[in-house]
Amino acid sequence: MTIEVNLRVNGVDHAVEIQPHESLGRVLNGRLGLNGVRISCKEGECGACTVLVDGEAVTSCIMLAVQAGDRDIQTIEGLGTPDDLHPIQQAFVDEHGFQCGFCTPGFVMSSKALLEATPHPDASEIAEGLSGHICRCGTYPNIIRAVQRAAEELGQEATNE
């Protein structure tokens, strides 16, 4: 059986035919070609596939795609562009919040959700907020610094507005 589902990804509607068992991550990466949705563990453990659904971070590898139908899905592709990075992305670049970069899109998306809920987190709030992610390279201290830096930057932007 196939079902048609409307996936609103980064503000654009996509009508896709899917099989019921297909995960959101599989459809985003495999069908819509979103390279930054990284499918790795398929157990919801590593966090590399994290995207935001209605603003909340979810592991797309274990979520049914059909359950994301008609909801607002944000992926790393909708965040910043190479010429105009989002402050969180820029902070990860500047603080070296990664090595291999495989886990990075997921960390960035969770950081976005975290900073929206908690604009000025301390280091342990950041660590807990990002505990759904594995950085096997072990760059956690620089990831925490990157999120702190992004928080400052975003706070600054908010003040200026």
């Binding site: 910043g80 562009t81 990075t104």
Partner: peptide, 15 residues
């Protein structure tokens, strides 16, 4: 920054 840092934070890097 790493030479490929922008590709990494935008999810564009091809693995």
């Amino acid at each position: 920054p790493l030479k490929d840092a922008v590709d990494k934070v935008t999810g564009r890097l091809k693995f």
